[in-house]
Simulated assay, not measured.
Amino acid sequence: MRILIVDDHALLRAGVKHILSEHPDIEVAGEASNGAEALARIQAENWNAVVLDMSMPGKSGVELIKQIKAERPKLPILVLSMHTEDVYAVRTLKAGASGYLCKDNAETQLAQAIRKVAKGGLFMSQAVAEKLAVEMLSGTSDAPPHTLLSDREYQIFQLIARGRSVTEIADELNLSVKTVSTHKTRLMQKMNVANVAELIHYAIRHDLVPEENRMPE
């Protein structure tokens, strides 16, 4: 199986290659450090699966997934992410990914996950599967406010809840401060919160941010 690794950190790409070097049926045949490189390689070559990091500069991971699926609808995408939140995983799967694996579990589960998605299957934890099923079966009228955010709004919501300032978010996502501020205003309106403190409290109450990454209330 020819695999494309997409991650902006060379060290992490090397780690993935090292893990997969023990599995002769899986060949890391290409690497990309950003979304533009990934799309160029996907358009130019044939792949059995893409292993995609979610936290890269520029396009959000969800946006990149949608763009890849628009170019290659049948190409399986396995998301390899530092984020453990179930809601974040559900968003990637609804965008078109075939699997979601936390980097903490990569050493033991990566090869298994790649094989499964490359053969047309889905790979996710039981908690993610349950949350995905609930969201797919329930209507949006009773959906929690955070599930109604756009992909970019949700990404910025996550970063605010982790304590990032508007300027820091703009630098991290390669956006203007004005653009981030506009998204911040819209997401707070959608979530019906008056200030950042209420937003952080919401994130903690709904267990949307790991405890070690939370900004104090």
Score class of each variant (00 low, 15 high):
27 E>W: 10
59 K>Y: 05
91 R>S: 13
147 T>N: 01
1 M>L: 07
106 A>K: 11
102 C>S: 15
173 L>W: 02
175 L>R: 13
199 L>H: 05
105 N>E: 11
120 G>R: 10
164 R>I: 15
8 D>M: 00
84 T>E: 15
79 V>N: 02
137 L>D: 09
176 S>I: 08
50 V>M: 00
193 V>H: 04
22 E>C: 07
197 A>Q: 11
13 R>H: 10
144 P>E: 14
101 L>A: 04
204 I>S: 12
66 K>Q: 11
107 E>K: 03
180 V>K: 03
181 S>I: 10
41 R>W: 02
39 L>K: 00
138 S>N: 09
131 K>F: 09
157 F>C: 10
149 L>K: 02
114 I>T: 01
48 N>F: 06
8 D>F: 00
114 I>E: 01
140 T>L: 13
13 R>F: 14
76 P>E: 07
213 N>E: 11
183 H>A: 08
178 K>C: 12
108 T>Q: 10
192 N>E: 15
151 D>R: 03
119 K>P: 03
132 L>S: 04
14 A>N: 05
85 E>A: 05
178 K>W: 08
128 V>G: 05
19 I>K: 04
106 A>C: 14
45 E>K: 04
190 K>C: 07
104 D>N: 10
98 S>A: 12
208 L>A: 01
52 L>W: 08
204 I>Q: 15
82 M>W: 07
125 S>H: 11
114 I>S: 00
217 E>V: 10
18 H>K: 04
45 E>Q: 07
14 A>F: 02
36 A>S: 08
71 E>K: 03
44 A>T: 12
87 V>D: 12
144 P>I: 15
173 L>K: 12
164 R>W: 15
195 N>E: 05
173 L>E: 00
198 E>Y: 14
50 V>E: 00
92 T>Y: 11
115 R>W: 11
16 V>T: 02
147 T>P: 01
140 T>D: 15
196 V>P: 06
44 A>H: 09
10 A>D: 10
69 K>G: 02
196 V>F: 13
74 K>R: 14
100 Y>Q: 14
33 S>N: 07
47 W>Y: 04
71 E>F: 11
12 L>K: 09
23 H>S: 02
134 V>F: 04
122 L>R: 14
3 I>G: 00
67 Q>V: 08
